[in-house]
């Protein structure tokens, strides 16, 4: 059913550049030029890592922003993809590791992530609001404890090590610059897909369902099916992020997908703002910078307090996250502008 609803309604042929928009072009140029000015650390540990967590938060904001379903289990779907890479690809933990090539493992990982997401979605669309959060939190917690205690499939606490990013045409994708561009391409694809889907018939239907499911059902739309498809797409994005995350870390263990990580994703989405798909990425950059450097500002004992206070302040001053702050600022500037013209 999704094949026909995702069709873009015929738009008048416009200049492609104009459709993309100046803001996006400037942003793209900046991101493409970023490796020229940054150290390897800022390229991967800040840049790549922010893009990966931005994608995870994007998959949450796709569900929450357009579908009204807040999920805490996105990190678990990333974990499904990550463990798939470890089990079917190569690892050096001497457990499983079928050694399949990356071009086979990666689609498989995405498929597993998306399918498990759709399955969990199918269960949780019967709930609403806080209950969706509870049920997905339960899923995330259960997934964490399961992989930590299962040794035959997931190798328990230590997890899998020695997971390598592919080397294609002599380019090692774990080297800082190729890795950054790989993350950038993946993030751009996910971002563009969400932007596109939001304006498609499917996206509009989903938003209508978010606003009034009963009315949509009365008109004759299959509410559950639309929601489950949204979960499937969100799972795809989370899975892509999960694959990049294990290539980035070179390893995966239960610590990668614990409850703290699940909540981290939610925090990133909320800090950035759920109103626009750029929000998660803005939030990810802020959160990653904070988590990396807070320990240098206040020392080892209280750095988590500083991070907490910062998040509290953002949510307090702008319930819409950093995007909301930007909106407020723009409004004020516009007013000032009008005043100065008088």
């Amino acid at each position: 059913m999704n094949a026909d609803v995702t069709q873009n309604p015929a738009t008048p042929a416009r200049n492609l550049l104009a459709r993309i928009g100046t803001g996006h072009l400037v942003l793209a140029a900046l991101l493409l030029a970023y490796p020229l000015v940054s150290s390897d650390f800022f390229l991967t540990q800040i840049g790549g890592y922010s893009l990966i967590f931005g994608m995870l938060a994007l998959s949450l904001s796709l569900l929450a922003g357009y579908g009204g379903m807040v999920s805490l289990a996105q990190i678990s779907f990333a974990g499904v993809a990550g463990y798939t890479v470890a089990i079917f690809g190569e690892n050096n933990s001497n457990i499983l590791g079928f050694g399949w090539p990356w071009w086979l493992v990666m689609p498989l990982a995405l498929f597993f992530a998306a399918t498990s997401s759709a399955l969990i979605g199918w269960v949780s669309v019967r709930t609403e609001g806080i209950y969706t959060i509870m049920i997905t939190l339960a899923v995330a917690t259960a997934a964490f404890y399961f992989v930590r205690q299962n040794y035959t499939l997931f190798n328990g606490f230590p997890g899998y090590t020695g997971l390598r990013a592919p080397i294609v045409f002599g380019v090692n994708f774990r080297d800082p610059v190729p890795f950054y561009y790989m993350c950038l391409v993946a993030a751009t694809l996910s971002y563009a897909a969400v932007l596109y889907a939001a304006r498609s018939t499917f996206g509009l239907t989903l938003q209508a369902i978010r606003d009034n499911p009963r009315r949509m059902r009365a008109i004759g739309f299959d509410v559950t099916a639309h929601k489950v498809v949204a979960w499937f797409y969100a799972g795809l994005i989370a899975g892509l992020a999960g694959v990049l995350l294990v290539w980035f870390n070179g390893r995966i263990s239960p610590g990668t997908i614990n409850v703290a990580a699940a909540i981290n994703v939610l925090i990133i989405a909320v800090i950035g703002g759920l109103k626009h798909p750029i929000g998660p990425f803005v939030g990810a950059v802020m959160v990653v910078l904070m988590q990396t450097f807070a320990i240098d500002i206040v020392g080892a004992e209280r750095f988590n307090t500083l991070i907490g206070v910062f998040f509290l302040a953002i949510v307090f001053f702008s319930p819409d996250g950093i995007l909301g702050l930007w909106g407020q600022l723009r409004q004020r500037l516009a007013q000032e502008d009008l005043r100065s013209r008088q």
């Binding site: 230590p158 390893r251 610590g255 990668t256 320990i295 750095f303």
Partner: peptide, 9 residues
């Protein structure tokens, strides 16, 4: 100083 939470990651 660097901080971890006892997980390898």
């Amino acid at each position: 100083r660097g901080s971890s939470d006892a997980s390898p990651d």
